[in-house]
Design a protein around this nucleic acid. Structure first.
Lengths: 335, 335
DNA sequence: TTGAAAGCGCTAACAC
DNA sequence: GTGTTAGCGCTTTCAA
């Protein structure tokens, strides 16, 4: 029950191993006759090339490593979809690893990817352990950090200012005349933290007090969590005039809970979410949000990697701000 | 700028290459003194082992291949989370590939995974191309097919009867006294199709006519799509007494749209979803659904793979029905 | 267009 | 506990 190797195919086809290898990689360089014989042998034997051997011999892996913090969030599904689309089309394999929002796990992921000799790394986030940074730097391959704007990018950085986005959302609520504005988040990861910083800054700038009830909890943002958090807050007898949720899912959950409790949105309370997920526009009432560009970020990151990989545009430090956009809808509409 | 190899580490540490290899794999078998010297050298050089070489030499990859149709659906995020949890803890790497609901892409994914010499394959679904089946069978490794129940499993099969689940949901609506019951779906993949078959069977058994308005469309299920589909249907002047949605997201979208249009759930129309996603319980009104066991399926699949991998429980054909459960909530409550 | 020889970077098996 | 030897399954020269 030995595994079938390229040599087996070669013997069966009556050619040298290298010819089989060529049929696999550049069929054009082999005569029609041999190509047919080899392909027949491959099919008969059910031969599947061993990529480990191929990678070792060629020292090319045609593989790009991608690190995301979670797979639970559609945000990353959209982003991965874009990366995939561009990279796979260009003949690369994509390895996705999730770091579960942990810098330590991210470091392990980086080691694993470098061990696989990926040809580039695309990583969501800009916060890494010192060793992670060092490994990425000395690996001499293109590295793209996404979703945030870094002070000191490793190489490429394609993101947006989470802080300014948070500020913008909060400012929107302030201009609506609200003073008691709460901030709601699930997992307080770096990006959520930055949005909170933006919230805080906006509140301060307006001479308002950030509310204590930063109803958060180490759990990924979901409709259910938004509902729970709102319920708890309301049960404590607190009801702010407006809430800025770090995520549309939380916002939707909060709105559902409002409905159950007979609280009208936006009449009794205004709610704004984040990311402008697909459902925000069709929610009832429709949900104000801050639109972010996950898909475009993915496409651009992938394209930049490809450029760095064949040209030698590589290893230049570059920072690209993808921006964001406030989307005003019914959930924060003036009465 | 040559890559650092194990030999480089060995020279720097003044030991033989195999000692370095041992420090990496079984540190316990090397004396303290040498271990320290080797680890220092590794750190100084920033050495990262080449897994391709290691895999080739040891013919072990410690890698499990997982195929899912999409990353857009939380269902699979939950399932992957479970697989990860068990397999990574046991020292395996997990490679996730998505087939985009295409059997051809799935075949490519299988080839890629086998090329990587994964030690087992866990694949969502039971419908594969003939070549896919053949490749999986002759690869002599544990294969688990999940989410559906197969007539002829390749090896292990851990799933549920999508058809009976569809039947159950429909039957629930029928016992509520409804006759004009619509079926709503996005992408009509195999599982959705089976649920539809169940719907159809239940309708027929009750002497009812399946509604034409199987409002479907090749797009992944989402709240936005549910909203759109409902809106289109309603604009055509159609309003069934009840809707069975193949996915809670569609159901939520439909409920939102009802709200916008002043249609009361469940008074004017009853709606049942599928999967019992986290938000179903907290939706307003709370959403009836059919609970499925994604997490448990993932855990069990992973455990079975581990068992097959060290014991030799392998290569036995086994079929496990994970079942499902009807969850009755407000959205289909009697008035 | 085809092939022979050498080697990619690591580890298994065996010695010491 | 440590080292030697051989080889995993491919591809890269280079030669014919």
């Amino acid at each position: 029950m030995r595994r079938i190797t390229l040599d087996d195919v070669a013997s069966l086809a009556g050619v040298s191993p290298i010819t089989v290898s060529r049929v696999l990689r550049k069929p054009g360089s082999v005569s029609e006759a041999l190509r047919v014989r080899v392909n027949d042998a491959i099919e008969n034997l059910g031969y599947v090339p061993n990529v480990a051997a191929s990678r070792l011999a060629s020292s090319r892996t045609h593989t790009i490593g991608v690190i995301v913090p979670t797979l639970y969030n559609v945000i990353f599904a959209e982003y991965l979809f874009a990366l995939h689309e561009v990279l796979v089309t260009a003949g690369y394999q994509v390895i996705v690893v999730n770091s579960r929002y942990s810098e330590v796990e991210e470091e392990n992921a980086i080691k694993a990817l470098l061990g696989q000799r990926v040809e580039a790394v695309i990583i969501a986030g800009i916060h890494h352990t010192p060793l992670s940074r060092q490994l990425l730097k000395q690996a001499h391959l293109p590295v793209v950090e996404t979703f945030e704007l870094a002070d000191e990018p490793i190489h490429l950085n394609i993101g947006m200012s989470q802080e300014r986005a948070g500020q913008t959302a909060t400012h929107h609520l302030i201009t609506r005349g609200f003073q008691r504005i709460a901030f709601m988040t699930g997992n307080l990861d770096h990006r959520a933290q930055s949005r909170f910083d933006g919230y805080h800054a906006a509140m301060q700038a307006a001479g308002l007090k950030s509310l204590e009830l930063i109803t958060h909890r180490p759990r990924h943002s979901s409709v259910a969590l938004g509902s729970e958090l709102f319920a708890e807050m309301h049960s404590r007898g607190e009801l702010p005039e407006a809430i800025f949720c770090t995520d549309d899912n939380l916002a939707l959950g909060a709105m559902q809970e409002c409905r159950k409790r007979g609280i009208l949105v936006p009449n009794d309370i205004s709610i704004i979410g984040f990311h402008d997920l697909e459902f925000a526009a069709c929610a009832a009432p429709s949900l104000s949000s801050v639109a972010t560009r996950r898909y475009e970020t993915g496409v651009l990151a992938a394209k930049k990697v490809l450029a760095a990989l064949d040209g030698s545009t590589s290893h230049l430090i570059e920072k690209i701000d993808m921006g964001f956009a406030l989307v005003e809808r019914e959930s924060t509409a003036p009465e």
